[in-house]
Design a protein around this nucleic acid. Sequence first.
DNA 1: ATTATCTATAGATCTATAGATAATGC
DNA 2: ATTATCTATAGATCTATAGATAATGC
Lengths: 234, 234
Amino acid sequence: MSTSRPGRPRRVERRRPGDTPEEEILDAAAELFITRGFAGTSTRLIATAVGIQQSTIYHYFSTKEEILDNLLTRTVVAPARLAESLMRDPERAAVRLYAMVWFDCRQLLAAQWNLGALFNLPESTRTKFPRFDERREYLRDCYRALSLATRSESSTSDSAQWSATEVDIAAALPFHFVEAAIQIRSDSPGRVERIGADDLATGIADAALRALGHSGDLTPVRKAARQVIRQIED
Amino acid sequence: MSTSRPGRPRRVERRRPGDTPEEEILDAAAELFITRGFAGTSTRLIATAVGIQQSTIYHYFSTKEEILDNLLTRTVVAPARLAESLMRDPERAAVRLYAMVWFDCRQLLAAQWNLGALFNLPESTRTKFPRFDERREYLRDCYRALSLATRSESSTSDSAQWSATEVDIAAALPFHFVEAAIQIRSDSPGRVERIGADDLATGIADAALRALGHSGDLTPVRKAARQVIRQIED
DNA sequence: ATTATCTATAGATCTATAGATAATGC
DNA sequence: ATTATCTATAGATCTATAGATAATGC
C-alpha cells in the first residue's frame, strides 16, 4: 500500500482533514462560507486554505455553487432520515418530537463546523438547491406534524384551552428552536464547549415540549427518547 | 415650498420610500442585503434599485460597510431602549420578560423589511460594527437577567426541581426565541401575513415563558405586559 | 456659490477555462 | 496512458476616486 498516488504532487503538504481532495475542499469551504459567507469567499481563498492552486478546485467541482450544494445537502440528510423513521414509530408523539429535537440539536452542536449556519446564508434560500430545499421542507413538515400530535396528547390533561391560532403557532416553533442551537453556537461558542452538546440539546428539547404545554417532570420523556434513537440507530 | 432642490436632477424619478437620498439608499440596501447578502450585493445594484448612478452612493456613505452599519444599528436601538426601561420597572420579571419578547418580535415581524435577517449575515459578526455589537450584547444580557428572575419567581410554585445547568440553558433561550420570528418571516412570509405580527409575537412570547416553566394560563401576564409597554411608550 | 448628481476610470479583484507538467501504473 | 496538479489568462466584475455638469439660491 503506497502512500503516494498518481498525478503531479502538491507544492504544499496536506493540512486538512478528509481522505480525498473533495473532502479537504469541502472542509475548508465549510469553515470559510460560515465565517465570510458564500459571495465573500473566493475560490482562491478556499484553495489557499487547502494548500492547492485556485484552478485545481475545478477538477473536483464544476462551480462554486456545487460546493455549497454538497455542504447543504449533507447537513440535512441525517436529520431527514431520522425523521422518516420517527414518523413510522409507534411511540407517543411527545417522545418522538423530543428525540428529533435532541438528535438534530446534538448533531448541529457537535459537528466540526457550525454547518447549520449555512442555512442562514442568503444564497441558500434562492431555490438553487432543490435537493436541500426538498429535504428541509420535509423536515419542517415532520416537526409540525409531531408538534401538533404532541399538543393533542397533552391538551387532555391541560387546564387551559388553546385557540386554533395558538396551536398553529406553537406547532411551528420546535423546528425553529433547533435553529437556536445554531445561533448559540455562532454567538457564544464558549458556552457550548462549557455546557457540552448533550446537555445543551437536552435543554432545547425540554423547551420545545414545555412550549407545547407539556408541564411537569420531563425525565421519563428524555429516557424514552434516547431509547428510541438508540433503537433506530442500530 | 418648492418641490425641487438644488443640485443636478436625477435621470430617473424617485421610486423608493424615504424623505432623503440616505433613506432611499438604506431602503434599497436593506432589501438587497437581506436577499443576496452583503458581499453578494454590489454598490451598483443598490444604486440601480434607487435609480441613481453607482458613484452617487459615495456622496452619502463613504464605504459599503457604513451602509450596513447604519441598518444594523437602527434595528437594535429601539429594543435596547425598551430593555433599559424594563430593567428599571417594578413589575414582576415574568411580565417584563414577556413585554420584551413581544415587543421585539412584533417590531421584527411588522417592519418593512425583515431587518433581523441582517444579524445572520456572516459579515455582521466580524466585530466591525462596535455600536451594534455593544447594544446587542446589552440586549442579550437583559434577556438573560429577566429570564433568570422569571425562573426564580416560578420555581417556588413549580413541582420539578431544576439543576443549575438546566436553569443556565433555559435562561439563554428567550433571546433566541426572538430570532425564531426572523426565521419564520424569511422561511414563510405567507404565514406571517396570514397570522399577523401581533398574534405571532404573542405565540413566541407565550413559548418563552412556558420554556422557563411558567405553566398555566398566560392571559394575566399578556395583559400586564401590554400595559407596561403602553406606559413606557408614552 | 453651493449642491446633487453625472461620466469616466484606475486598480484590484473573481470565476472558469486552456493547456502544460510531474507523478504513477501498465 | 492516466491522473492530479500546476501556470497562465480572458473577460467580467467591483469599490472607490476624480472631476464635469446641471440645478438652486444669493
